[in-house]
Simulated assay, not measured.
Amino acid sequence: MDLTEQPTFAFDVFSKACPSRGTLEHVTGRWGALTLGALYEGSFRFNELRRRVDGVSEKMLSQTLHALERDGLVHREAQPTNPPRVDYELTPLGREVAERLLSLIHFVQGHMDGILEARERYDTARGGR
C-alpha cells in the first residue's frame, strides 16, 4: 500500500475527539513503547520489567501498564500466592503492536550513526549546544 493513500477506518487519529489518539499516545510514548518492546521478550514480573526498562520509575511503569492493560495490549495475571505474584505479558493484539514498534526501534538503532551525525551538524550550524 502506498503510504500516501488514506485507508478507510471507523476511527480517525487526526480528529481531536477520536479515542484512538489515547491509545496511540500509550503505545508511542517513551515508556509505552519500551514496555511493549520488553514484554515482546516474554512474561515479566513488575520488578523484572522495571529493571529491563532501565530508567522508568515505579510510578510511571505502573501507570503505563494500567493504560496498556486498559487498551487490551497487556494482560496482568495475579497469582494467589503469599506473597502475591503478578505477571505481565502481551495479549495477541499487544504482540502485533510490539512487532511494529520493534521494527521502528530496530530501524532507529540501525541508523543512529547517521542520526548522531545529523545532530552534530545541526548543533554546529546553530553555534553548539
Rank of each mutant, 00 (worst) to 15 (best):
V74W: 03
W31E: 09
Y88I: 06
A125C: 05
E25N: 12
R126A: 10
I105Q: 08
G94W: 04
T35A: 14
H66F: 10
G32W: 09
L24W: 09
H26T: 00
P19A: 12
E58M: 02
A98T: 02
M1H: 12
R52D: 00
A38F: 07
M1D: 11
D123I: 09
A67E: 09
G127A: 03
G37M: 07
L61T: 00
F107S: 07
R76T: 14
L101R: 07
G72A: 10
P92I: 04
L90D: 09
G114R: 11
K59S: 08
D123R: 14
Y88C: 04
T91S: 14
S57Q: 03
T64S: 05
R126C: 05
I105V: 15
T23I: 15
P80A: 15
R121C: 06
F9N: 02
V27G: 01
D71G: 11
K59D: 11
R51N: 07
T35L: 08
R95E: 15
A78C: 08
A118T: 13
V97D: 03
L39E: 02
D2P: 10
L3S: 11
S15K: 13
L102N: 12
L61K: 00
A78I: 11
L73K: 08
H26P: 00
A10N: 07
E58S: 13
D87R: 13
V74M: 02
Q79M: 13
L65C: 01
S15M: 08
Y40Q: 13
A17F: 03
E99S: 09
R70W: 08
S103K: 12
L116F: 14
A98P: 07
R51T: 08
A33R: 14
F14S: 11
V27S: 04
L104M: 10
T8D: 08
R70F: 13
L3Q: 05
K16T: 13
P7L: 09
R121I: 10
R51K: 13
R52M: 04
F14C: 08
E58L: 04
T91M: 12
P7F: 06
G94M: 04
S20H: 08
E25Y: 09
Q6G: 04
F14W: 11
L34T: 05
E41N: 06
T64D: 02
E48S: 06
P83C: 13
M112V: 08
S20R: 10
A38Y: 07
S20M: 15
G110M: 02
Y40T: 07
T28D: 02
P7H: 04
R119K: 06
G42K: 03
G22Y: 04
V27C: 04
D71Y: 03
R50D: 00
L39P: 01
L36I: 12
F11I: 10
Q109I: 01
L61R: 00
P84I: 15
L102V: 06
E5D: 15
D2M: 07
E77W: 05
T81P: 06
L93M: 13
C18P: 03
R95G: 09
F44G: 00
K59V: 14
G29W: 02
A98E: 04
T124V: 13
R119Q: 13
G37T: 13
G114C: 01
F44C: 01
T91C: 07
F46I: 02
T91N: 06
R129Q: 10
G110Q: 05
S43V: 08
R30E: 11
